[in-house]
């Protein structure tokens, strides 16, 4: 079992949900990223997602676009991000997942990427512009290396696509809550519950929801529907505003603790209790 599998299994056994915290690696510096990751775990993040910057991130809203630009300007590369993970892995026990785009992975080499990432202690990878139809070559390298390739399901995904994605995704399934790019939003879409129910019909794999989740209340609401809530832009915006301040790490840590508190209040229970797929399995 991968570290992601055991993490979600342990959370489910406790009736708890995962807080997945995203930061862009190298923003404002790789040294800060290391401190932020360690603090995020300490303050309650269950999984940490590290963005590997790309010059043309078409799935990102303005906040993460700016973060990726800052990280690139500060010299972050795939190789340096993987080195950073390798050096911090001993101090971090939660799963670490990379979020990136296909071109930096291709440029690194698919086999080299899968092996180097797994050796560094990376547990999974999300490649934002790599749908399952195009993911064969990377999956063929990731699987033997022990790297979970995580796929996304979108509100526009048709039922056959939802089944395909549920089958191919490893570690967890990333539910994109809205048609759109990453970024903070006021409301959680009304049809999200239905979207997750559709997914639960075909899979027992953990389901985490991202895009537009930014407040403790929203995290709590997601906690009632899914196995995990992914918070990105709200954390990244805080890093943007506090970069250079001595209290950066502490303030981001406080915010993560608040998000986590929302999730803990969401109440436990087996997220699959209403799942027909789980009932069939039982």
């Amino acid at each position: 079992m991968s570290r992601l599998d055991t993490t979600f299994a342990r959370l489910r056994a406790r009736g708890a949900r995962a807080l997945v915290a995203y930061v862009t690696a190298g923003d404002p510096s790789l040294a800060d990223t290391r401190r932020l990751v360690i603090e995020a775990e300490r303050r309650g993040a269950d999984v940490i997602e590290l963005g590997v910057p790309f010059s043309d991130p078409i799935a990102e809203g303005p906040v993460i676009q700016r973060a990726m630009n800052r990280a690139l300007a500060a010299g972050a590369t795939m190789a340096r991000v993987l080195e950073t993970v390798a050096t911090m892995r001993a101090e971090v026990s939660v799963p670490l997942v990379l979020l990136t785009y296909y071109n930096p992975v291709l440029a690194f080499g698919l086999k080299a990427f899968a092996r180097t990432a797994a050796d560094a202690g990376v547990d999974g990878a999300i490649v934002a512009d790599l749908p399952p139809e195009e993911a064969g070559p990377l999956a063929a390298e990731a699987e033997p290396a022990g790297l979970d390739l995580i796929h996304l399901v979108a509100p526009t995904s048709t039922p056959p696509r939802v089944r395909l994605i549920a089958r191919r995704s490893r570690g967890f399934i990333y539910v994109v809550s809205v048609t759109g790019v990453t970024g903070e939003r006021q409301e959680i879409p009304a049809d999200l519950a239905a979207q997750i129910r559709t997914l639960r019909l075909v899979t027992t794999k953990p389901v985490c929801v991202g895009f537009g989740i930014s407040t403790p209340a929203q995290v709590a609401a997601i906690g009632r529907l899914a196995d995990g809530a992914i918070v990105g832009s709200a954390i990244v915006r805080m890093i943007e505003e506090r970069a250079g301040s001595r209290t950066l790490v502490e303030e981001v840590g406080n915010f993560i603790a608040e998000l986590k508190a929302g999730l803990s209040e969401a109440g436990g229970g087996d997220p699959l209790q209403t799942s027909p797929a789980a009932r069939r399995k039982a």
Binding site: I58, Y102, D129, P131, E134, H151, L152, I165, G180
Partner: peptide
């Protein structure tokens, strides 16, 4: 059928765009 010209082309987009494409 996959939109490939040999190894070139394809459909490398976020999942949201797959069904619309």
């Amino acid at each position: 059928a996959q939109g490939r010209f040999g190894r070139f082309g394809g459909r490398f987009v976020p999942e949201t765009l797959m069904a619309p494409l």
